[in-house]
Amino acid sequence: MAITIKDVAKQAEVSPATVSRVIADNPRISAKTKQKVRETMKSLGYYPNFQARNLVAQKTRTIGIIMANSTTLAFQNPFFPEVLRGISVSAHNSQYGLYLSTGATEEEIFEEVVAMDQGKRVDGIILLYSRVGDRIMDYLFQSGLPFSVVGRPHTNADAISYVDNDNIGIAKQVMAHLFGLGHQRIAFIAGGKDFVVTLDRLKGFEEALAEHAIPHQAEYVVNQEGMQQDGKGAIRQLFELPEPPTAIVTHDDLVAYEVIGYLEDLQINVPEDVSIIGFNNHALSKHLKPPLSSVDICIYELGVEAANLLLEKINDEKAVPRQITVSSRLIERGSCQGR
C-alpha cells in the first residue's frame, strides 16, 4: 500500500497541513519541524507528488537552460558542464529541475525558447551567453518570462538580471602581467565577434595598449572565424610578420591548446620563443607541458549566481533586476617568461 501524507503526519505527530507546508518549504514552519517531518518521510519512503502540486500552483518547477550552440557542440567546451554544475546545485536546493535546449541551429533554439514560454514548460530561463542583437534575449525581455543571463547583455543591461566577470578589467590585468615580463608585441586570439565577452576583453586589450603608449596593430588580432577556417595558417601569418608577437592571449584555454600545437609544428617554443595565456582555467591546463597560465573566471560560481538570480525573479515577480560581478584571477604557470 502506498504511503500517504496522512501516514507521515501521524508518524511525525503533526497535521497533514503541516506536512504539506514542509514539502512546500514554507518559511513559517520551524527548522526543527521541517527536519522531523523530512526524516519521517524518508523513513517511511514517502515521495511527494510534485506534478500534482505544480498543477495546482501553476508551476513547472523547471528551469530552461539555453546555450548559444547545440548541446553537441556546447559540451565540447568544459565551460558548460561546469556552469551547469553550479546551476544544478542551486536548482536542487530549491527543488527545481533543468530543461536543456536541444536545437541544432539558432533558429531551432529560438523556436524552443518560444515553445518553453508559450507552452508553459518552464518557470524561467537562463541564457548561458550574451550576444549582440540576439533574438532570444530580445524575445525574453519582451515576454515577461523570468530570465537571467551569464554575461553582460549588450542592451538593456540595467533592466536585466545577469552575472558576469569584469572582462575589461581582467584583460587589462593579463596585459599588465605581460608588460611586467617585458612583452610589448602581444597578439590576441579573439572569440566570436558578436559575443559581448569578446568585445569586453578586446576593449581591455586595446585600453591596456593605449595606457602603455603601445600602438594597436590590427594584424596582432586574430578573430575566431580566421582560426576556424585555417588556424595553423593564421598562427603562421603572425610569425611571418616583420615583428612577430612575443606573447599571445587566447580567449579560451581550448584555443590556447590548439595554438600551442600549431607553434610546435612551426618549431616555435613556449615559453622560450613566445609566452601564452588563456582564459577559463580548465582542469587540463595545469597538466600541460609547460603548464598553461590562465584566468580563473570561477565558472561554477557564475552558474550558482545565475540560478539564484532567476529563482529570485520566479519567486517574486516584483524583484528588481540585479547585476552580480564574480571575481576572476590570473593563475601564473610556466607558459610565460620574461624577455
Rank of each mutant, 00 (worst) to 15 (best):
N156T: 15
A157E: 07
A157H: 15
D158C: 14
D158L: 15
A159L: 13
I160R: 08
S161L: 09
S161M: 05
Y162E: 05
V163T: 06
D166T: 10
N167S: 05
I168M: 06
G169F: 03
G169E: 04
A171V: 06
K172H: 05
K172L: 12
Q173N: 11
V174L: 07
A176F: 04
A176E: 05
H177P: 01
H177M: 06
L178M: 01
G180P: 02
G180N: 05
L181C: 03
G182D: 01
G182F: 06
G182C: 01
H183L: 00
R185M: 07
A187R: 02
F188R: 02
I189R: 00
I189N: 00
I189L: 06
A190M: 09
G192H: 13
F195P: 02
V196W: 03
V196I: 11
D200R: 07
K203A: 11
F205W: 04
F205Y: 09
E206Q: 11
H212C: 04
I214E: 01
P215H: 12
E219R: 02
Y220F: 13
V221C: 08
V221L: 14
V222D: 00
N223D: 11
Q224K: 13
G226V: 12
M227H: 08
M227T: 08
M227F: 11
Q228M: 14
D230G: 11
K232Y: 13
K232H: 15
G233T: 06
A234R: 10
A234D: 03
I235H: 06
I235W: 08
R236F: 14
Q237K: 14
Q237P: 10
P244I: 13
T246Y: 06
A247H: 04
I248P: 00
V249S: 03
T250F: 07
H251A: 12
D253Q: 03
D253Y: 12
Y257I: 07
I260S: 01
I260Q: 00
I260N: 00
L263K: 01
E264G: 15
E264R: 13
E264A: 15
D265L: 13
L266M: 10
